[in-house]
């Protein structure tokens, strides 16, 4: 399932919508090159979830936690090399917890991700303001999310 975004406003709209739809236990994986807009999309998902604090880049601490309508766990796994490192961070508590996991650079840890998840791939286009989004849902819950999003 693909969506074309014509500017940052579209990114915000999409993220907000997703933020309003998510439920406890949802895992959203964000993939895309540096500068594609992963953190921008994360910010807008946070807005949709009612997180009042700024959603800043999780690059430094790897996991940032926020309180919104639901807890939001914002990951940047760019610098993780293997599964052990992931489990040292206690990710299972997050993955199977009561909040929503938002994982930037999720492709780096693909084999360790829970089966049921929504993958969001962000592709840059020749026009610097445009993006193409590809949604890859795993499981019925995520297929529902993806269908709602492209409506």
């Amino acid at each position: 399932m693909k969506i074309k975004l014509n500017g940052i406003e579209d990114t915000y709209k999409l993220g907000k919508k997703l933020g309003e739809l998510v439920e406890p236990g949802d895992i959203i994986c964000l993939n895309g090159d540096l500068g594609a807009g992963k953190t921008t999309l994360s910010k807008s998902i946070g807005l949709g979830m009612g997180v009042a604090d700024y959603i800043t880049s999780p690059t430094f601490a790897i996991i940032n936690e926020y309180d919104g309508r639901l807890p939001l766990y914002h990951f940047d796994v760019y610098r993780l090399n293997n599964g052990d490192e992931l489990f040292d961070l206690g990710v299972e508590d997050y993955f199977y917890g009561k909040g929503v996991c938002l994982i930037e650079w999720a492709e780096n840890i693909e084999e360790f991700l829970p089966e049921n998840r929504l993958e969001v791939w962000i592709y840059t286009l020749p026009d610097p303001y445009e993006r193409e989004i590809e949604l890859i849902p795993y499981g019925a819950r995520n297929e529902f999310l993806a269908k709602e999003l492209i409506k």
């Binding site: 500068g35 953190t39 921008t40 910010k43 700024y54 800043t56 880049s57 430094f60």
Partner: peptide
Amino acid sequence: GRTRDDAAGEAFDKVARA
């Protein structure tokens, strides 16, 4: 004031990487 997205040094690191 504080950052709303990337830290200053992080912006340097990421641009350097690019």
